[in-house]
Amino acid sequence: MAIIVTGASGLLGSALVRALRDEGQDVVKLVRREPRADDEAYWQPDRQEIDRAALEGARAVVHLSGASIGGRRWSAAYKRELLDSRVQSTRVLAGALAGLSAPPEVLLSASGVDFYGDTGDRVIDESQGKGDGFLSDMCEQWEGEAARAGEAGVRTVLMRSGLVLSGKGGVLGQVVPIFKIGLGAPLGSGKQYWSWISVDDWVQAALHVMKNRDVVGAVNFTSPSPVTNTRFTRALGKALRRSTMPIPVPAFALSAGLGEFARAALLPSHRIRPGKLLDSGYRFAHTSLDEALRAVL
């Protein structure tokens, strides 16, 4: 009754694996090389190869694989990599699960709040439909492949994550060095909402939905307290005890420096409510951004 995890070496995967093992769970990591330990199994989604025997009888599967969205400009080739690393891997995994004689009870598959597109200052939950843009289209295709497991009877949860706050990388790993030298500043108008979640809450929310059989479909993995980018900037500066720049970085400058990544990932507004987590009884450890930043930093 192992729990299978893809992307286990990443920020979220490594934190989740630690938490599962702390609970005494047997975890098997899918790796894209020859397995070197009993807790590893082989897959290579680019070749449509996967160790189906490792999946038979598993308790749950958590799928977190995907190329990093941030940290670089998006060329046409890298956008294809972003898409393929998610869609192809999910297609291979969900197809394998659908063909098992003893499939897992649940599949938790990663996605993002980018599914909703730019929603301005409206508070939205999982009932909101798809938005526009490359990331929204990618999330739709990504989730569509995971749905194949659901069609085969596997309870499928689509984890639409916001910005995950961790002191070990992710968005903070990219921006903290800038803030530490006093160059932190709001981006664009600064009025766009950023929906965030602490890494501890992300992990505990994943464990919560894994165990709660009533939770199915899209689930927003975000704190119930989204903030504007300006508020985020001030809170991070305060947590690091650094002043921040009073003048925002203009949207045109961000676009010139970071290209489509800035326009698609930094400037859109996501004011998200984690409706299904709250309704299913999940209690957040960190509902205040200041508190969350203190905890992770």
Rank of each mutant, 00 (worst) to 15 (best):
L108M: 12
G70L: 15
E126W: 14
L236K: 11
P103Q: 03
G13A: 11
D290P: 08
P246W: 13
H208P: 07
H286S: 00
D200M: 04
V296A: 00
V216H: 13
E151F: 00
P45L: 12
T222G: 06
L97Q: 05
Q141V: 05
E56I: 01
I69C: 07
A94I: 06
G57Q: 10
Y282W: 02
L267I: 10
A265E: 06
R213G: 14
F179M: 06
E81R: 09
S75Q: 02
K211V: 12
S9A: 03
W142Q: 01
F261P: 04
L297S: 00
S111F: 04
P104R: 06
N220V: 04
E145M: 14
G112R: 09
S255T: 10
M210H: 09
R271V: 00
L20G: 02
L97C: 07
K180M: 04
L11M: 13
V87C: 05
E56D: 03
L254P: 03
S198F: 02
P250K: 05
R18N: 14
L278F: 03
L297M: 13
A149E: 10
G275E: 15
V61E: 09
L97N: 05
A76W: 01
E23K: 15
Q48I: 08
P248F: 00
V62D: 05
T287G: 13
K211C: 03
L12N: 08
W142S: 09
K79Q: 07
R234G: 09
